[in-house]
Write a protein that binds this DNA or RNA. Structure first.
Lengths: 255, 255
DNA sequence: CGAGTGCTTGAGCTACGTCAACCATAGTGG
DNA sequence: CCACTATGGTTGACGTAGCTCAAGCACTCG
């Protein structure tokens, strides 16, 4: 079950980004207080102190977004990228008939807004699933920086390419997988992303509703719910509401 | 019907890239012979003659790929981007169980290989649907150029963002649309891309098989075939095998 | 001309959607 | 503290869009 298996940024750092416990349960202890900016944009690249400072100074603002509030909406003019510092988001696109589809969920360390670069307008909207904070990265200055610092340029390209890969995986999932496989892939993907960010990769809280999960996975909320029940009966996961524990990740992958 | 509505590159140039007639039928006359390289990479940006020359010199090679042959395969190491000069390609990803899914079709002027940037390996394979030629653009030199020439950098970012948008549209299609809507969207998308490249946007030859179309759209080849028949009965298109004429594009969009 | 490949169409099956009832939890106001 | 409502989740019964399997046709190509 490889679909949607890629975190949105290529920050494969082993040290965590956030300072908040996510589930409150079975967290690795976080030994260092770390500036978010440093990790999200720069961790993957090796920079001099002076270069690091320039990257740091790029982050113009840390913004707080209340639960249910939009960070940006479809058709808003584009000028910033955002990096989730705490909390979580969903991105949604609207069909002309009013139906909307969730196109992604973002957790700390992941990037938002890349879709806006082409036309200078955001094509999806981003809404906070809980009270969240983001680092605001103005795009033009970021481009300037990328012309000056080669590893930074490479990093930005990787982040964008990663997003392309994430979406291909999603296309694969939507094009070929059964409902139970989709839910299993979704859980493994979330687990992997939490894991690589220092949270537990076997137990976490899903901030999104069944409806949002279903929309994301191209199934109805009822089917999503049934699949959670099915996976539970098969002893692959333990799920009560939004709290999930993965019991047999190999089993999930084998579906 | 907005899904998959975006050409892969942001070349919104009104002048055509290729010099070959595509369908042989109802083509606009192509008044200028134009170097492919000039258009595909640079048309959208305003460059000095000297800058243009540097971009031109980037294209190290024009490669010919026979029908059914691979331009690159999944897991090949990544070093070049490619721009289709003539002919057409499909990109495919392989599921671990051996099933493959088509993730895109590329026609002249469109770019291939962006997925390879993240991990330095291609994640999808690219196969020619007919005898085709591509411009080979080595990525590292391209990055160098993008650090030197700001509009070029912006252009590369747009091309990548465009690909992200294209895939989001695909996700929307796969997540929310019925089979007939998918086929309609596919046809309108192809038509638009041919149109913006100077070919006819109402009549063209689909180089891919029903099986490939089905795979791309997340349906079986039988369903794809049935939907072509259905759209034909409804007088929205005229399709005989791979030759298609769009009779009522509004009707297709309204489905 | 025969073989291979792709396309179409039919018949039956099934995974998933739809509709609906019911339960759990959390926030709100008296 | 307890209704009271709103929101989200679960489960069942039933309908259907699209899948599977299968047969036959239409090309292209050696």
């Amino acid at each position: 079950m490889f679909a949607a298996d890629a975190p949105t940024t290529s920050s494969s750092a082993s040290s965590p980004i956030g300072r908040r416990f996510h589930t409150g349960i079975s967290m690795r202890s976080l030994s260092h207080y770390t500036q978010c900016e440093v990790h999200a944009l720069c961790n993957p690249v090796d920079l001099s102190a002076e270069e690091l400072a320039r990257v740091d100074s790029l982050v113009s603002e840390v913004r707080t977004v209340q639960r249910g509030a939009s960070l940006f909406r479809a058709n808003d003019s584009f000028s910033n990228l955002y990096i989730v510092r705490s909390g979580s988001f969903k991105t949604v696109v609207m069909h002309r008939d009013g139906r909307e589809q969730v196109t992604g969920f973002q957790i700390p360390g992941e990037m938002l807004g890349l879709d806006g670069i082409v036309h200078g307008r955001h094509l999806c909207g981003a809404m906070a699933l809980e009270r969240s904070t983001v680092c605001v990265v103005p795009f033009e200055p970021l481009e300037d920086l990328c012309r000056a610092i080669k590893p930074m340029q490479r990093h930005l390209h990787k982040v964008m390419s990663q997003e392309i890969v994430r979406e291909s995986n999603m296309i694969m999932l939507l094009g070929t997988m059964r409902a139970d496989q989709r839910v299993a892939a979704f859980l493994l993907n979330l687990a992997g992303r939490y894991g690589s960010r220092g949270y537990s990769d076997t137990e976490f809280v899903m901030r999104m509703t069944r409806g949002e999960i279903g929309s994301y996975l191209g199934i109805t909320l009822e089917t999503a719910s049934r699949m959670f029940s099915k996976l539970q009966h098969e002893r692959l996961v333990h799920a009560r509401g939004k709290q999930v524990r993965i019991l047999d990740s190999d089993g999930l992958a084998r579906l």
